[in-house]
């Protein structure tokens, strides 16, 4: 589906091999095995939070944002915490942050496709941001790229992505081409 392409592109982009860490200590790149999210493939995880429906371009921007200290938001789940805090949750201590359990909505769009069909709703739920609630048409051709400052505009080797896979950079009818 593209996981190999994303992993290779990130290795090139960061100049890292599998399991290596950038000089600034911000990003460690690791090849992950099955993460029970094939319905959102390809998936990248940061601190065990889901970043669904990624492309080469969105994954590169994700690591750039992480290295520059910009806020990134997972597609499903709570805002990122430090890995130390993640480890505490894994050890059995509940996440006490306000709204952390609520974050990400009830279910991602792919989790709801069958339910919507069973109800007689036919709108494709694939390109909908889970936090925006119900299905809505988000034509892909209207998605506008909002590049990070350090991203070279011609550096993308993947086509344009939609806001569904990159909630940190919502792009939609409110943004005009060229803004």
């Amino acid at each position: 589906m593209g996981g190999d392409a994303i992993f290779e592109a990130l290795q090139d982009h960061l100049g890292l091999g599998n399991g290596e860490t950038t000089d600034d200590g911000k990003v460690t790149l690791e090849h992950i095995e099955c993460n029970a999210a094939c319905d959102y493939a390809p998936v990248v995880m940061v601190n065990w939070e889901f970043f669904d429906n990624q492309t080469v371009q969105s994954a590169k921007r994700l690591v750039d944002d992480l290295r520059d200290g910009r806020t990134v938001s997972p597609t499903r789940g709570a805002p990122l915490c430090t890995f130390k805090e993640t480890a505490r949750i894994l050890a059995g201590f509940p996440d006490e942050r306000e709204g952390a359990v609520d974050a990400g909505g009830s279910a991602g769009p792919a989790s709801l496709v069958g339910l919507r069909l069973a109800r007689g709703e036919t709108a494709p739920a694939r390109v909908v941001h889970p936090r925006d609630g119900g299905p809505q048409d988000a034509p892909q051709d209207r998605a506008v790229h909002d590049p990070s400052p350090n991203e070279h505009l011609s550096s993308h080797d993947a086509p344009q992505d939609t806001s569904a896979s990159d909630p940190a950079h919502p792009a939609g009818p409110t943004a005009e081409e060229g803004e």
């Binding site: 989790s111 069958g114 339910l115 069909l117």
Partner: peptide
């Protein structure tokens, strides 16, 4: 759980015995 090169990957809850053709046709 439908995944891969399908138009609408995701979860489809159905009685046991449905076929992939039916799932693909509806989705």
């Amino acid at each position: 759980s439908l995944s891969g090169h399908v138009a609408s990957p995701g979860q489809y809850e159905a009685p046991l015995g449905i076929t992939l053709r039916q799932l693909l046709e509806m989705s």
